[in-house]
Amino acid sequence: MSVITVNEAISQALAEEMRRDPAVLMFGEGVATKRANLVAEFGAARVRNTPLAEGIIAGTAVGAAATGLRPIVDLLFAPFLCFAMDEIVNSAGKLRYLSGGQFKFPMVVMAMSGAGWTVGAQHNHNLEAWFVHSPGLKVVMPSSAADFKGLLKAAIRDDNPVLFFMDLALGYQAGEVPAGEVLVPLGRAATLREGRDVSLISYAKTVHHCVAAAETLAARGISAEVIDLRSLKPLDEAAILASARKTGRVVVVHEASRLCGVGAEIAAFVGEHAFGALKAPVRRLTGPDAPAPASWPLEQAFVPQADAIAAAALELVAARRSAGPSPRPSTEGAVSMQA
């Protein structure tokens, strides 16, 4: 066991997988510049800088993946994925199916997003739900150093295209990572804290806000379970259902906006499959339907924080199912939090 940052965990995962498999290579804008250690160990052919052109970076990865390589591309900030949507969604996601299974696309697309760097909406936009909605793709968004390492390694070994989202706020966050091989399977959620009264389901940085909220709730005698989804596709539906049935109360928390977000899927899924176990309506705490602002207080207000999560959980615990509709609508960022 050692304590390393998320960035170090990513670096370890890349080096270990490139060492293990000569088909793994990495390219993107500034990749060779920023990862000189990988260039030194694996050579310039396997670690490349590219022109600043996300479409061709992603497309090149798709073509390479279909013909025997296992590319990792770093597209930097998630909004830049908009320039690569054809290659990721139309090619990587569809050409296996459209070809009747003739090709596979073992590739990883890395991108950063989320509040924390005050970079504004063209560098900070949590787009993960777009890719969850697109067939043929897998999507992961970890919250801890160990999961960053283990999920990145698993993503590189997966035979499908994987979108690997890195929350901007977490890069320098340190965490314990086991010694030796660390592999975290895609599609498996982690229960960070067991609880009886309410389930707090989240991913990426808001997982930490849920943990803080759970501590606040514990001090008030409420036992909150915290589920870190880690993978958004495949989604660990079994873990979600088990927790919802156990506690009967679910709060879904994410920084991405509410409409058609991952929380909408979870709420609907729980409603379809665990309705009888619910003691209160599912609540969603999300970012607002607004571009991410740069100003620090606004950027922080964009993100569901621990106090709002604890408050939502308290309301659910206080509500009786027979009392009728939800005491408050789902909460979206600063505007409704102040309402």
Partner: peptide, 21 residues
């Protein structure tokens, strides 16, 4: 390999197929 009906799609993929070579 990798026929794309998105006009220009094949141009974005050919570089990767060639990179493999």
């Amino acid at each position: 390999v990798l026929t794309s009906t998105i006009v220009g799609g094949e141009l974005s993929l050919a570089t990767g197929v060639a990179l493999s070579r």
